[in-house]
């Protein structure tokens, strides 16, 4: 009896430990899921996608310009996706660089709805390969012209399967309604992008930049087509900002070198 009285308190302590451990044991599987969901890799590259006709060297000047304006020098890796899905690399990511630039270009860089869809699929192949090599799970992206469409298609259709999270997206003169100037006409590209908008991340911050050489567009892309971005991103992503740039270098081809846009990239895409 004395022994029982002596040890019952010890039994209560051990029972309390077990009781308080029950929530933790039940929560254990959720803990791993939560850790994976909230985990962000140290590396968060800025992925740049050029428009049609442009190669993976399209942003060499832009990266050089940005590196002169920032304290941290960002390395540059260029990837070309061949039509047979093979990847050709040039440049390198410096060890310890947490925000390198990665340009993804395509061997078939022709314009047109079918080609843009193909380029989005090739982009996914390159993205998966880069993710496997560099172990990043979040990134920011900038697409010039059709590059913006490729990135939007990727984020709507393929990104969820990669497990990656897009932090920020900047589209520069991206024709969400292709070259259609008539505001009453919806192209198949626009219809597809609107149909897939619910797959866009609620945490994504989007900037849509438009060039204004004339009062109706940047010389190639109609202003209304860029403006259509609001029907895709607005009320879907965390924030959506539209900016119109005019003045020198405001025509479609020169926009990535436009000083206002370089400043916006430095300010909004780089940490």
């Amino acid at each position: 009896m004395r022994s029982f009285n002596h040890y019952w308190s010890l039994g209560i302590i051990l029972a309390l430990i077990c009781l308080l451990s029950v929530p933790g044991l039940c929560w254990h599987s959720q803990q791993i899921r939560a850790a994976r969901a909230t985990y962000r890799s140290a590396m968060a590259p800025v992925i740049l996608v050029p428009g049609s006709s442009a190669t993976q060297n399209r942003f060499n000047q832009l990266v050089k310009e940005l590196n002169t304006q920032t304290k941290t020098q960002h390395s540059l890796l260029r990837v070309e996706v061949k039509t047979n899905n093979q990847l050709v690399y040039s440049g390198a990511i410096r060890r310890g660089d947490r925000q390198p630039f990665i340009v993804i270009g395509f061997q078939n860089r022709a314009d047109g709805l079918t080609n843009i869809r193909k380029q989005a699929a090739w982009f996914t192949i390159a993205f998966r390969a880069l993710q496997k090599t560099y172990h990043f799970n979040h990134f920011s992206a900038m697409g010039h012209s059709n590059g913006g469409l490729i990135l939007t298609l990727f984020m709507e259709n393929a990104m969820a399967k990669t497990g990656a999270h897009a932090d920020r997206l900047m589209t520069i003169a991206s024709p969400f309604n292709l070259e259609e100037a008539n505001p009453k006409v919806d192209t198949p590209m626009f219809t597809q992008l609107v149909a897939g908008r619910q797959h866009l991340s609620k945490d994504l911050v989007v900037y849509s930049l438009a060039g204004s050489q004339s009062y109706t567009g940047d010389g190639i892309v109609p202003f209304d087509s860029v403006d259509r971005g609001k029907y895709i991103f607005q009320k879907q992503v965390k924030s959506f900002t539209q900016i119109t740039v005019s003045g020198a270098n405001a025509n479609h081809a020169n926009l990535p070198e436009n000083q206002q846009i370089v400043r916006l990239i430095r300010q909004d895409l780089l940490d």
Binding site: I17, S21, G24, L25, H28, Q31, I32
Partner: peptide, 13 residues
């Protein structure tokens, strides 16, 4: 977290 459970949860079970 109760002491004995910290290592179990920390190692993913």
């Amino acid at each position: 977290t109760p002491g004995p459970l910290i290592s179990y949860l920390g190692t993913g079970g």
